[in-house]
Design a protein around this nucleic acid. Structure first.
Length: 928
RNA sequence: GUGGGGGUGGCGGAGUCUGGUCAAACGCGCAGGACUUAAGAUCCUGUGGCUAGUGCCUACAAGGGUUCGAAUCCCUUCCCCCACACCA
């Protein structure tokens, strides 16, 4: 792995000479961004895939003559870094262990112990890892302009984000309203996924129950359900007889619900005043009213009712709910309550093919005997799924009859709400506790700030723009369109975390996905703000720089910033914007990338809207996902030392196309490594060789290379790196092997294309390109060399002839394999002249060549030959006939060597009468 | 649940949009050979079945359909993966 020895040297040279710091006033510019990494730890080779491919794009564009801006910054907004510091401060063992592990990637154990004590300050964590990540990036050879680096905790960035939010407010997309979030009652604080026990593995979401109020002697017995449409099939209400319920005032009415439910309602924006509690059994046997039909419904006891789920009151739909049906069965022998619901006359309200009373039938099928049977859960789910997709509401459902369950659900819910018999209760999707063992419930915040993506005009513009943008691979475009369709109001500020304070209410902090949507613009000016006082970064400054509004004079006056600094900033912005390409992983489509597009649309002039997005899939290792817990992570920091950066880059670029998952397999890495070694070996030998006369095989090799280069250039433009490398590396190396066998002077021949070859691979293996560039007589940095032009025309006839020789060789081999003998003499017979006339006709007329049969003497034979040529689609393989006899005679030595046999062409000797079988490009063969 | 992607050889993966050029690019593995005292590295050859030949048969998750023709288009079923709002 020779490349390891020279990589660091070139990285230093690039940095020292500012090779990747672009100048202004370019003719052709290209502005590439990759989302900045979040600095909570070390990055691994999976993250590196995205940055590496981005870098390859940047480098390729530079070769193509673009002035490329490829900047980088660091994200520190949000709660994770904060909670890391909290945990380290609280001496949480797991966190400390994890971070010591991270630190040891870069530090001696003693230093790691020292540094971790500073990590109680979140900014120190962020700063430390930002430093290390940029060091890692440099070690992989990324061509980043580091002069524009910043992190999102800096004041200049905060000022910029504040400006962004003023803009959003002006555009009317910032709104305030109610919002349900996960909440801890004990702590009185929101809880995030990382606060919840097992929150990472078993996600907790928020579900909406419909609370339906059943009139109950001037009060309401309030039942909660996820299936409002089943209200038409209810026969009774269930309470848990042992459970504790409360009689409470809720929003001015008296409700009977479980104690837990009352607590939840209190934090969900309801006025709750609990007056008295009682056991569920106390109301058993009384009657409530169906709020839709007025029907009398008995209150019955059931043990499956969970007080801490919904309201602790459930309305029974025994024909459709396995639990309800079974609970009725369990009760049927009860002398007083057993006959209040007639189990043989259950109202069926949903028709599904194959069932008459679904719950009854599935229970019987599974042999359910008791409501405590644990299988009921799964059976319920199963039945619900069937009903949801194939069930139709029947004529018991009034105006909803005939609807599918999937449609009826929302319609019935809306009607119940409209009639004020129903409202919403939020519940967690599963029982959850925080890591400090507090119960997680849902609370409703009523002054939450949102970005209103549901705004119709805005959406329309977004959709239209996405249809026009360049999206690579194309298949992700639909995902963008779906996302924008689905996007609704999105909370954009939080009470916790690092980041920019919300400018209109300083108690809030802008949420980390909402503070990173237009910062590509910030790159253009970041370096000029570095030394200015934050106070000078007034709204007017950004207005002027980004929107061109206001006058230079007045901005100078209000900000006190020097006139030419402001002018330069404006110039930088105009120079680089829009962002030509943003490259990242598909996971960001449904949030970040769509916000990125939408915010640009809201704030900037259309000519500055983002032009393109490219995406690459993830990287796994030996078939499994990399994760800290599995201990199979290779960090970016180890790449240079372990594999060398050029090998890493080559593997990442060549082993899968953008939309396929890369599997990092040590064995395959070794394979790629040997290709790279071989390539370097050829360069070294080629550089020393003398160019000589070109023979057929040399012409063939050079021509094949030009064809590959042309195809690879196209692939690079389409970001199909794998295909490009297959052309430039694997196929060309294979061709070279043949050249080595056949040519008198293979290295002299390859020398003619070495510079071209090297630059064509430079985006992928830049260090190797730099190292050998001077050796080959290149000037300046290889990284800045122009992309090779393809002026040389491939010699098609040489290619055809050599391919013909190779195919004859293969044919002889095929036959000797079939004949199962190793020949000592090989006889080749060239096809008769008239068959070449047939070939000519087929090359010219393709499928329609049959009509020329008439021109031949032996029409039957001619028709066979032509048919065969057509079937073989010969015109796609060979574009012209060659003088086969001469070509083979020229190559006779090579053939004899390869075959280890004497080769005779058009010999009189033909004992098996093979000569007649000969066809153009397929001489007849006889072996002895 | 909602939305998206996918199932091809011993393996990773091309090919699918634009049906015929496909027994399947490129790579890995495996087998035989060359080189070597030997191993490794490297190079050559082979790697569905039949066949001294430009062909036939069986294959592209399973089943069905459209078509002269399907891995490719349509339908059904099974299986796998990914993303989903405060998480960066």
């Amino acid at each position: 792995m020779k490349w390891k020895s020279y990589e660091a040297k070139w990285q230093k040279k690039w940095e020292k000479q500012g090779v990747f710091v672009p100048s202004l006033d370019s003719k052709k510019k290209f502005f590439l961004t990759i989302p900045y990494p979040y600095t909570s730890g070390a990055l691994h080779i999976g993250h590196g895939r995205t940055f590496t491919l981005g870098d390859i794009i940047a480098r390729f564009k530079r070769h193509q003559g673009y002035t490329v801006l490829f900047p980088m910054a660091f994200h520190i907004s949000g709660s994770p870094i904060l909670s890391i510091s909290d945990k380290i401060a609280k001496e949480d063992v797991r966190t400390i262990r994890l971070y010591l592990e991270y630190l040891r990637i870069y530090e001696t154990p003693e230093n790691a112990e020292k540094i971790i004590t500073t990590f109680t300050d979140p900014k120190k964590v962020a700063k430390y890892f930002a430093g290390k990540i940029s060091q890692d990036f440099k070690s992989i050879g990324y061509s980043i302009d580091w002069t524009r680096e910043f992190n999102t905790g800096e004041e200049r960035y905060n000022k910029f984000v504040e400006w962004q939010y003023h803009q959003l407010k002006e555009k009317g997309v910032l709104v305030q309203g109610k919002y349900p979030i996960l909440w801890s009652l004990e702590v009185g604080q929101p809880v995030g996924e990382d606060d919840i026990a097992d929150g990472d593995t078993d996600k907790v979401t928020i579900t909406e129950f419909n609370m339906i109020k059943f009139p109950f002697d001037g009060e309401f017995l309030v039942a909660a359900s996820l299936r409002p449409e089943t209200i038409f099939g209810t026969t009774n209400l269930w309470v848990n007889p042992k459970g504790i319920y409360v009689r409470t005032k809720v929003d001015g009415e008296t409700w009977l619900i479980s104690r837990e439910a009352a607590e939840k309602l209190r934090v969900q924006g309801h006025e709750v005043d609990v007056s008295k509690d009682f056991r569920g059994r106390e109301i058993v046997g009384r009657f409530a009213q169906n709020p839709l039909t007025g029907e009398k419904l008995p209150v019955l006891p059931a043990h499956f009712v969970d007080l801490d789920n919904g309201t602790g009151v459930v309305y029974a739909v025994p024909a459709h709910a396995p639990y309800d049906y079974q609970a009725l069965c369990d009760l049927s022998n009860h002398e007083r309550l057993g006959n209040l619901v007639d189990i043989n006359q259950l109202p069926v309200i949903i028709n599904i093919p194959g069932y008459s009373v679904p719950a009854k039938e599935v229970n019987e099928l599974h042999g359910i005997k008791d409501q405590k049977d644990s299988r009921l859960e799964a059976i319920t789910k199963e039945l619900y799924k069937t009903e949801f997709y194939s069930g139709l509401l029947n004529n018991k459902c009034g105006k909803f009859s005939g609807l599918r369950v999937s449609e009826a659900k929302d319609k019935v819910r809306d009607k119940l709400r409209k009639d004020k018999v129903s409202s919403t209760l939020y519940e967690t999707s599963r029982k959850a506790i925080t890591r400090s063992k507090n119960k997680v419930v849902v609370s409703v915040i009523d002054d939450q700030w949102f970005i209103d993506y549901s705004n119709k005009e805005w959406k329309k513009k977004g959709t239209k723009w996405i249809k026009r943008m360049e999206i690579i691979p194309e298949k992700y475009r639909k995902w963008f369109l779906d996302t924008i369709e689905w996007l609704d109001k999105r909370p954009c500020a939080r009470k916790r975390g690092l980041g920019t304070k919300f400018p209109f209410d300083k108690d809030w902090i802008i949420e980390p996905l909402s503070d990173s949507t237009i910062y590509m613009a910030f790159y253009t000016i970041a370096k000029y703000l570095k030394d200015l006082s934050p106070d000078s970064m007034k709204l007017e400054l950004f207005d002027f720089v980004f929107l061109g509004t206001g006058s230079l004079e007045s901005v100078v006056k209000t900000t006190g910033i020097k006139r030419d600094t402001i002018e330069t900033m404006r110039k930088e912005f105009l120079e680089w914007y829009p962002n030509d390409l943003r490259h990242t992983a598909p996971a960001h489509v449904s949030n970040h990338l769509t916000f990125f597009i939408m915010h640009h649309i809201a704030i900037f002039d259309p000519k500055y809207w983002p032009k393109g997005i490219s995406l690459n899939e993830v990287l796994i290792r030996e078939g499994v996902k990399m994760s800290k817990s599995k201990g199979n992570v290779i960090t970016l920091a180890h790449v240079a030392e372990k594999y060398g950066s050029d090998l890493y880059r080559l593997y990442v670029a060549s082993s899968a196309e953008l939309d396929a998952v890369i599997d990092w397999r040590e064995r395959d890495v070794q394979g790629v490594s040997s290709k790279l070694s071989k390539f370097i070996d050829i360069i070294e030998k080629g550089a020393k060789a003398e160019e000589g006369e070109l023979e057929l095989v040399d012409e063939w090799f050079l021509s094949k290379f030009y064809i590959s280069l042309k195809s690879a250039t196209k692939h690079m433009e389409d970001l199909k790196f794998r295909d490009a490398i297959v052309d430039l590396m694997f196929k060309t190396l294979n061709d070279f092997k043949w050249l080595e066998r056949r040519s008198k002077n293979p290295f002299g021949t390859v020398k003619r294309i070495l510079k071209t070859w090297l630059i064509a691979l430079a985006p992928v293996i830049p260090h190797t390109a730099e190292e050998y560039w001077p050796t080959l007589g290149g000037e300046g940095f290889a990284s800045l060399a122009p992309w090779p032009s393809i002026s040389e025309k491939p010699n098609i006839s040489a290619v055809t002839k050599e391919e013909f020789v190779r195919s004859v060789l293969n044919q002889v081999r095929d036959i000797s394999k079939l004949a199962d003998k190793k020949p000592t003499r090989v006889f080749l017979y060239i096809a008769d002249k008239w068959k070449y006339r047939a070939l000519e006709a087929v090359i010219k007329e393709k499928e329609r060549a049959m009509k020329s049969v008439g021109q031949f003497e032996n029409k039957e034979a001619a028709s066979k030959v032509i048919q065969s040529l057509i079937k073989g689609r010969i015109w796609e393989k060979f574009s012209e006939a060659v003088d086969e006899e001469a070509t083979l005679k020229d190559a006779i030595k090579a053939l004899e060597e390869e075959l280890g046999a004497k080769v005779e062409i058009n010999s009189k000797r033909d004992p098996l009468k093979k000569k007649d079988r000969a066809m153009p490009f397929r001489p007849a063969i006889y072996l002895e």
